[in-house]
C-alpha cells in the first residue's frame, strides 16, 4: 500500500558511493595512461604497472588505518611519524634482533590501544593526543636511527618484491586490502560497532556494548595498519629513515575523504579509501607526465586533488537539502 519512496534514491546512492572514488581515481589515472600507453600494453603492462603503483601500497595501508580512526570520528595525526618510526624499528632493531624488534612493534600497538582508552576516558580529542604522539614517535625514531640508513630484514624486502603471475603485485595487494578492509568494516561485529560509535556512541552503549573496548580495538588496528604501512615502505625503500613517510598523515586523510569518508558520523568506505589512496599516490606520476614547471608543481598538485574531489562529487549531488 505504501510505496517505498526512498528505494530509488537509496539504490542510486549506493551506486554512486562506490563510483565516486573510482571516478576520482580515473581523473588522475586516465591522463597518465594517455601519456604512458605502456600501462595498458599487453607486453609491458606488468612491469610498468608494478613500478607505477608500488609506492601506493604503503599509502593504501596508512589510509586504511586513518579510515579506521575516522570511522569512530577520530583522526590520527601521528600517522606519518608512526610509519617512519616503524621503518627505523625494522631497519635498526628488527634487522639485528628480531625478538627486540617484535617487542618494539608490540609496544607501539599497546601505546595505540592506550590512546584509544585515553580518548574514551578523558574525553580528549584524538587530534591533540596524536599530535603529541607525533613528536614522541619522531623523537624515538631519531633516537634509534639518528640518520637514514639501516637494512631491512630480507624477508620484508622479499615480501614487497613478490611477482605473481599476470596481475601486478601492487594490484593484488590493493584488491586484497580493499577486501580485508571492507570485510572488517561491514561484515564483522567490530566494524558495525565501530561505525555505530562514530554515529551514536550513546545508543551503542545503551545496547550494552563497551565503547571503550571499541575505541581501544579501533586504535589498536590504526596502529597495526600504520605498522604494516611502515613495513611495506621499509621493504620498498630497503632503508630506515626517521622522516621517510613525510606527508602520509594528510595524504591518508585526503584519501579517506576522497573515498567518500567523512570526519564525523561514522561514514567510511574501505574500498573508497583504497581508491583514494591510489589516486593520491598517482598524483606524483601525473605531475611528471604533465611536465609541470617546478615552480607550479605544488600548486598544480593541490589543484588536481581538488579536481578529483570535485569531479567525483559532481556525480554525487545528494540533492539540495538545507536547514536553518
Amino acid at each position: 500500500m505504501v510505496r517505498p519512496l526512498d528505494s530509488r534514491k537509496e539504490g542510486l546512492a549506493r551506486y554512486t558511493e562506490t563510483l565516486v572514488p573510482a571516478i576520482s581515481l580515473l581523473v588522475v589515472l586516465l591522463p597518465i595512461v594517455y601519456k604512458q600507453p605502456n600501462l595498458i600494453s599487453p607486453d609491458r603492462y606488468y612491469a610498468t604497472l608494478t613500478m607505477t603503483l608500488a609506492f601506493g601500497i604503503p599509502i593504501v595501508l596508512a589510509s586504511l588505518g586513518q579510515m579506521l580512526a575516522m570511522s569512530i570520528g577520530e583522526i590520527d595525526f601521528a600517522m606519518e611519524n608512526l610509519v617512519s618510526l616503524v621503518t627505523c624499528v625494522m631497519g635498526a632493531v628488527m634487522f639485528k634482533d628480531p625478538l627486540l624488534g617484535t617487542a618494539f612493534l608490540i609496544g607501539i600497538l599497546a601505546v595505540y590501544m592506550l590512546i584509544g582508552a585515553f580518548i574514551h576516558l578523558k574525553k580528549l580529542p584524538s587530534i591533540i593526543i596524536t599530535i603529541g604522539m607525533s613528536f614522541i614517535w619522531t623523537g624515538l625514531a631519531i633516537t634509534i636511527q639518528p640518520t637514514p640508513g639501516g637494512s631491512m630484514p630480507a624477508a620484508v624486502n622479499a615480501a614487497m618484491r613478490l611477482r605473481p603471475p599476470w596481475i601486478p603485485y601492487p594490484i593484488v595487494l590493493a584488491v586484497l586490502l580493499a577486501l580485508i578492509g571492507h570485510f572488517l568494516m561491514f561484515k564483522t561485529n567490530f566494524g558495525i560497532l565501530a561505525r555505530g560509535v562514530g554515529d551514536n556512541v550513546k545508543s551503542i552503549q545503551q545496547a550494552g556494548h563497551s565503547a571503550i573496548r571499541v575505541r581501544i580495538m579501533v586504535f589498536g588496528l590504526v596502529g597495526l595498519f600504520g605498522i604494516l604501512s611502515g613495513v611495506a615502505l621499509g621493504g620498498l625503500t630497503t632503508s630506515a629513515d626517521p622522516l621517510l613517510a613525510k606527508n602520509y598523515t594528510l595524504l591518508s586523510v585526503a584519501a579517506v575523504v576522497l573515498g567518500g569518508g567523512t570526519f564525523a558520523g561514522g561514514k567510511v568506505s574501505a574500498v573508497g579509501a583504497v581508491f583514494g589512496a591510489l589516486a593520491m599516490h598517482l598524483v606524483v606520476h601525473l605531475l611528471v607526465v604533465l611536465k609541470i614547471s617546478t615552480d607550479w608543481q605544488a600548486g598544480v598538485k593541490g589543484f588536481i586533488i581538488l579536481l578529483a574531489l570535485y569531479i567525483g562529487g559532481f556525480f554525487k549531488r545528494a540533492g539540495k537539502i538545507r536547514y536553518i
Binding site: 561485529n189 558495525i192 560497532l193 561505525r195 555505530g196 562514530g198 554515529d199 551514536n200 550513546k202 545508543s203 551503542i204 545503551q206 545496547a207 550494552g208 556494548h209 558520523g265 561514522g266 561514514k267
Partner: peptide, 21 residues
Amino acid sequence: LSLCLNLTVAENLRVFHPEFR
C-alpha cells in the same frame, strides 16, 4: 531514536541483539 543512522536496519538489529551473530 537510538538507531545509528549510518548503519543498515539489519546492522542496527545486530548492535542491540547479540544473538544475531
